[in-house]
Amino acid sequence: MSIMEYNGGSVVAMAGKDCVAIASDLRLGNQALTIATNFEKVFPVTERIMLGMAGLATDVLTLRDRFRFRVNMYTIKEEREIEPETFAHLVSSTLYERRFGPYFIEPVIAGLGKGTNKPFIASTDVIGCINFAKDFVVAGTATDKLFGVAESLWEPDLEPEDLFETISQTLMNAVDRDAFSGWGAVVHIITPEKVITRHLKARMD
């Protein structure tokens, strides 16, 4: 079995009108055995950027810590918050540093640009090749299902509450068909004013 599927878990991000959403499931497993149902895979980077990671859980944690380190140093030296595009390239180069012995995660980035509030979403592969998208990006063991559901549910220029509904339905319906993801979900909606975080109950089996 692939190491990318060892712990299970899925992440999805979507762009709306002056807002973005990013969501993950909560399962942490050892292959088919569920160890915990409170393992969040989305982390705040700044007030307006969030990073989700799907893949090997140890690397999710290690990279969370490494990105926190580098973003904090960036913020304190530059005396300003990092931009989503800049952060995406930071993620990319951090992963490519391990080109021949990679971290086994696929990151998903969601954020709003400074001043413009331009929605930004992107994902990369395990070695940091960036995929910029205008609609949605996905990662994890339910990738193929997420693509299918997102493709049919997503539409352009959704308002925050509609985007919340869309991303929640997308994630929940996708992970219901995936044995390695699920056990509840957490959704973050980033708007120019604030980040709204909601925990979802899903099929708990």
């Binding site: 712990n7 942490l28 050892n30 055995l33 569920t34 160890i35 915990a36 409170n38 393992f39 090997l56 859980a57 140890t58 944690l61 290690t62």
Partner: peptide, 25 residues
Amino acid sequence: YWMDYLGTQVDVPFAAHGYGSYFAL
């Protein structure tokens, strides 16, 4: 905290390692 040899870590109310985990969890 539950931790495995890969460095996976999670904060849990109950935990187990080994074959017992298949029952206990």
